[in-house]
């Protein structure tokens, strides 16, 4: 990635992308739907990336990548086709195309970097926005829970699926390299804290990602041919999590959140952790 990006200071979308591109190497094409990454590239005739980037309409990334992957394979090429899409482009408008591509066994890697809102258009709610978070379309806090896209992906039973966080770059790097060794569709879901969207100061970006993991709000894991392995960092967090409040309090988007909502978040968190622990323990 070159230096002409126009991301906000402290943006973890661009941070994560740096590691993704490093891990993927030069024989890679990035397919990007409308999102912050469309802006980060800079303005024509500049581009901030050193691999080809194909920009496509908001809801169409996975379908476009399907075509591209099939074309490369037909030509006998192994070129990595990587979708790099936001939570809106994945959980909301792009879910149909994504589901189709996974069901068809498309040979590609789909990466969703999740800043939990529509960053490009100035932070409106998305299906990825967590319960209680304020966005410009949920001024009193979102009343619905975050959509569990990982469970939806798991239902497609891809060979490889993982979660990652921009705050843990080595883990992310390894997962991208691994994902690209599988034939068929793989999925990586990256938590990407966003200073203007989450309303915290720019220098706290890495800390915010770590707090998410340490509190158990974000769990790092891999699922290989259906077999779940929880990452070491999250194992620690599951045994001895930091208080949920330590994660919520520094974020302006949760300011003034109703204690009842915090309790619901706490319960959902516990339920998710025990579900994952049970899945991992199962023979």
């Amino acid at each position: 990635m070159l230096k002409c990006t126009s991301a906000c200071a402290g943006c973890s979308d661009s941070l994560a992308l740096r590691y993704v591109l490093k891990a993927a190497g030069p024989d890679t094409v990035l397919v990007v739907p409308a999102c912050c990454t469309s802006v980060i590239q800079g303005i024509y005739p500049n581009t901030a990336f050193n691999v080809p980037v194909y920009n496509i309409a908001f809801g169409a990334a996975a379908a476009c990548a399907s075509g591209m992957s099939n074309a490369f394979r037909a030509a006998g090429k192994k070129t990595n086709v990587i979708v790099y899409a936001g939570d809106g482009g994945t959980l909301d408008i792009g879910i149909q195309a994504m589901s189709g591509a996974f069901e068809r066994g498309t040979d590609f890697l789909y990466i969703c970097y999740d800043n939990e809102a529509y960053g490009n258009t100035g932070m409106q709610r998305s299906g990825g926005t967590p319960l209680g978070a304020k966005t410009t379309t949920t001024p009193a806090g979102k009343t619905e829970a975050k959509k569990d896209i990982d469970a939806i992906i798991a239902a497609h039973d891809p060979p490889y699926q993982a979660t990652a966080a921009a705050a843990y770059p080595q883990d992310l790097f390894k997962k991208v390299q691994k994902a690209l060794t599988f034939r068929g569709p793989s999925f990586i879901h990256i938590l990407a804290p966003c200073p203007p969207g989450w309303r915290y100061s720019t220098e706290k970006t890495v800390e915010m990602g770590k707090l998410a993991v340490k509190s158990g709000m974000w769990v790092l894991y891999e699922r290989e041919y259906g077999k779940l392995t929880i990452g070491a960092q999250s194992k620690v967090a599951m045994k001895k999590p930091i208080p949920l409040e330590d994660y919520l309090a520094p974020q302006g988007r949760f300011k003034g959140i109703d204690p009842k909502t915090v309790e619901i978040i706490r319960q959902r968190l516990a339920k998710n952790l025990s579900k994952l622990a049970a899945e991992e323990a199962a023979p």
């Binding site: 126009s6 906000c8 802006v39 203007p196």
Partner: peptide, 13 residues
């Protein structure tokens, strides 16, 4: 009177 912001793709700062 009219007031118009001129928007670019530029971000904060």
């Amino acid at each position: 009177a009219t007031a118009a912001p001129f928007y670019g793709a530029e971000r904060r700062g």
